[in-house]
């Protein structure tokens, strides 16, 4: 329908408003909508620079210093759960919650047998953390120096969107303080006090968990991830979260 024809139509009700006025207001409406959408697009744009699509970022492409990360040497895990105990004790984790856990997988092998694989899980301190994007009050954020995904308990409104957004089930609601709690690589309890390792790493008797600065080419994590002929993987890579917890059997 042409606008001219529209203008000639009988006004059907709100007869105080002329077509021109209405159109002017609609334009304003579209402008406002454009600002909303533009704002949205701009707010998402910087995230695309986070990192390339590879599992392990190439040398020199680490966004933080120190770029804290953890390497899990999966085949060594015996499910003793000392890491979980140490984490709970160090970080005041209540009995109904956990910051780190060990999951069990079973794989068919030759001769009709099965092998059991223990898979430690924790917050992946993603480079593109979905939990951080969705938090309405920036109660959770990615630390600009260390890359650790941190929580400000006093700012958390308890909407639990971060829990829904996390691809790794790494968050739980801590009733005692009324906030969503999560692993922060023991930042407040150990790292900020000069410790070099997290509680779970120190407690592990099998040297499964290795923690360190990925940006430091002399670090053990760097070495493990860049050893020739080793396979390194992350959990749920297709979510695009770019995790900093790596798995290997080296």
């Amino acid at each position: 329908m042409k606008l001219k024809e529209l203008e000639q139509l009988k006004n059907e009700g709100v007869d105080h408003i002329s077509s021109i006025e209405r159109r002017r207001f609609l334009k304003l409406g579209f402008l406002v909508t454009g600002v909303y959408l533009g704002g949205k697009a701009l707010s998402l744009a910087p995230l695309t620079e986070a990192q390339a699509a590879e599992v392990v970022p190439p040398k020199g492409k680490y966004s933080y210093s120190p770029h804290y990360s953890m390497v899990i040497r999966e085949r060594l895990c015996i499910n003793c759960e000392l890491c979980v105990e140490a984490c709970n004790g160090t970080n005041d984790v209540p009995s109904y919650g956990y910051r780190t856990d060990i999951l069990e997988r079973r794989r068919a092998i030759v001769d009709d047998k099965y092998e059991t694989i223990f898979m430690p899980v924790l917050c992946n301190h993603c480079n593109r953390p979905p939990c951080v994007r969705v938090c309405p009050t920036t109660a959770t954020w990615k630390d600009e120096t260390t890359g650790i995904v941190k929580m400000n308990p006093g700012r958390c409104i308890g909407c639990k969107t971060c829990m829904t957004a996390c691809p790794y089930n790494a968050r739980y609601f801590k009733e005692e303080g009324r906030f969503v709690d999560k692993c922060n690589f023991c930042y407040d309890t150990l790292l900020s006090k000069g410790a070099k390792e997290t509680a779970c790493v120190t407690a592990c008797p099998a040297d499964v968990r290795v923690f360190g600065d990925l940006a430091d080419t002399n670090s053990r994590v760097y070495e493990l991830l860049h050893t020739p002929e080793t396979l390194v993987w992350v959990l749920r890579p297709k979510t695009g979260a770019l995790p900093n917890v790596y798995y290997t059997n080296a």
């Binding site: 109660a139 700012r155 409104i157 009324r178």
Partner: peptide
């Protein structure tokens, strides 16, 4: 929401435009 009362301040002070 568990802590509704934190919303008025949190939404302003901590406004997250990507949320």
């Amino acid at each position: 929401i568990e802590n509704t009362w934190r919303m008025p301040v949190g939404n302003v002070v901590g406004a997250n435009l990507s949320s």
